[in-house]
């Protein structure tokens, strides 16, 4: 019992650290996860870490939470999953809530407005940049680049919901897999 209680606490605090001290999203968490889970706690070997990482990236949902699910289950079962996820998202939620409450009262304030006038184009650029990074890891080539282009145009110009685009992609992948064509 006491060993398990220690495990739960360790999971909670490891993921608390991973969630609280990384800014800029799930992928920024990778190096700190590696340090915490592989080097410090020794819950995973390095190749296992890579396997779970690619699985967490491939599955739907938030990458960091998916990692917490994998590691939590492995170390201490479903209770471990709960501890790891709770640790991972607790501080981010508290901080966002506090900011959301405060920021509402400053909307329309001249200083805040001048800051956000500059932040808006910057944020659009921050979303555009990963497109090119991810294009590389998704192995976009001249033969398959029509897939991301058509997906983007359907959503942007034709107002198709991303949900449909994802569903069509899954169906397309299944058909391609069944036909067994090599690419």
């Amino acid at each position: 019992m006491s060993i398990f209680a220690d495990m739960y606490r360790a999971l909670f605090f490891s993921f608390f650290r991973i969630g609280t001290f990384t800014i800029g999203g799930g992928y920024v968490m990778i190096p700190i996860m590696e340090e915490e889970l592989v080097d410090k706690r020794k819950w995973l070997k390095r190749d296992e870490f890579l396997d779970l990482m690619s699985l967490s990236q491939a599955m739907p949902g938030v990458f960091a939470v998916n990692m917490a699910t994998c590691v939590g289950r492995r170390v201490a079962g479903w209770r471990g999953v709960v501890c790891a996820i709770a640790g991972n998202i607790m501080m981010p939620i508290v901080i966002i809530l506090l900011l959301a409450m405060v920021f509402r009262h400053f909307r329309g304030n001249a200083v805040v407005e001048s800051i956000f006038m500059a932040l808006r184009p910057a944020v659009v650029a921050l979303i555009a940049a990963p497109v090119f990074r991810l294009a590389k890891s998704a192995k976009v080539s001249w033969r398959n680049c029509w897939i991301p282009v058509v997906a983007a145009l359907l959503i942007w110009l034709f107002g198709v919901s991303p949900v449909w685009v994802i569903l069509i992609a899954i169906a397309g992948g299944l058909v391609w897999g069944k036909l067994g064509r090599e690419d």
Binding site: L134, I147, P148, V149, I155, W156
Partner: peptide, 29 residues
């Protein structure tokens, strides 16, 4: 594996769309 290959490609388009949809006068003047 095949399904995920197609999904990875599609997601690149999805993120591009998010950026394109924000290229508006509200963001840029």
């Amino acid at each position: 594996e095949k399904v995920f290959q197609v999904l990875r490609l599609t997601v690149v388009g999805l993120i591009a769309a998010a950026a394109l949809l924000l290229l508006t006068p509200e963001s840029f003047g």
